[in-house]
Design a protein around this nucleic acid. Structure first.
Lengths: 225, 225
DNA sequence: GTCTATATACCGATAGAC
DNA sequence: GTCTATCGGTATATAGAC
């Protein structure tokens, strides 16, 4: 057991980590300023070093604390009663909700992915493996029941989770792109985005099922709109 | 017409932009050091400022030059003869190939997405809109022909492209995760990743087609393996 | 445990000689 | 056009008083 989590976070360590998560997420590791983190945590810079050590240790603490919370939520979602499809959708919904109530999480992960995970502490890979296992088990269950096609589980997991995180993270960019392209500008809530990803991945984009086989390609199955 | 593109890039401007792309991609905007860019371009720091101006202008030049090249390749891919599904797969293949022969591109884009596009110049949004239109047109064509289900095209485009870019970018992270989780470590080539995404998106994960409708859920359609 | 003051280093940008 | 030298600003990290 580590520290108790309270809403106001009286614990200096927690206040610092929470503030650091925000700054690291919005500015990256190199761009984050210790002064800004200290200020946002409401303490002095010297105190920050006293409590959590240098910038690198603080960064590791932020990442580990984030993924730890995400992991336990995702595990709970996958333990939901229901079909593998429903479990997978529950995982996506949970990830979207977590990414929204913890807006630092997705930028943090995406920056690390962009840098090839160069600054990731070893413990992070273990946690990421645990997250994979949550999705991987659902996929395996689906294949076993014959409701999922067999695929490379790690690739499918990354595809699924990456697509949703990307969709969530691009919200502001997407709106500006829509404006620049003369498209209708819509702001989608996270739940909607999770459903879009789930729908797309579960049923596929093609209207005709398995049209690539040697079965007859059914053109224009009427009543589709 | 701007400048001629040669392999060795005798033009100082090009050498600088190419070097900057590498450094910005691996260190981010704030983390990138002008000295390192100059050194990697084989010129003096003062010359860098003489040729391209300050850090921000250099960054914009890198982004615009990258997406411009990607855009023309993607347009060519979408102009391929074939079904909408084949065109979509061609676009994915092209993006994967481009991301591989231009390893700076995906990290650059992902970092910007992670920061909400805060440092993106206005011209970038126009280009990103053009990239969307390439995919959007293929999607519209597929819907028109009745082979694609109608979806929000912008969301589907971002989901598709985001999934592939994420898959490509996580290659090194994925291997370390696999090692930490005791999974078989595989290094997939970009073409394979593009096919994984295309396959998943086009046909979906579910073995039974449209099982969510009121049609009979066909359990265990035999001969699936 | 908390804060002020500062050491130390580095970075972006430019001045100015050639 | 090219380079050296350097200015001005700011960053991480710590020393030391309280």
């Amino acid at each position: 057991m580590k520290r108790s989590r309270s809403a106001v976070a009286a614990d200096p360590h927690e206040r610092i980590v929470a503030a650091a998560a925000q700054v690291f997420a919005s500015s990256g590791f190199e761009g984050a300023r210790i002064d800004e983190i200290a200020e946002r945590a409401g303490i002095n810079k010297a105190m920050l070093y006293y409590h959590v050590g240098d910038k690198e240790r603080l960064y590791s603490a932020v990442l580990l604390e984030s993924i730890e919370r995400a992991l336990s939520l995702l595990r709970a979602a996958a333990a939901t009663a229901g079909s593998p499809s429903e479990k997978l959708q529950a995982v996506l919904d949970t990830l979207a909700a977590f990414g929204t109530s913890n807006p630092e999480f997705i930028p943090l992960i995406m920056r690390e992915v962009a840098s090839g995970g160069r600054n990731l502490p070893d413990e992070m890979f273990v946690r990421m493996g645990a997250v994979f296992r949550v999705v991987g088990d659902v996929l395996a269950e689906g294949v076993e029941q014959g409701v999922f096609r067999p695929t490379d589980p790690l690739l499918t997991h990354v595809t699924l989770v990456g697509a949703l995180m990307y969709l969530l993270a691009t919200e502001p960019v997407r709106q500006r792109v829509a404006r620049a392209a003369g498209l209708p500008v819509a702001d989608h809530n996270p739940a909607h985005l999770a459903r879009h990803v789930g729908n797309l991945f579960l049923h596929g984009l093609e209207a005709a099922p398995a049209a690539s086989r040697k079965t007859v390609t059914r053109k224009r199955r009427e009543g589709s709109r």
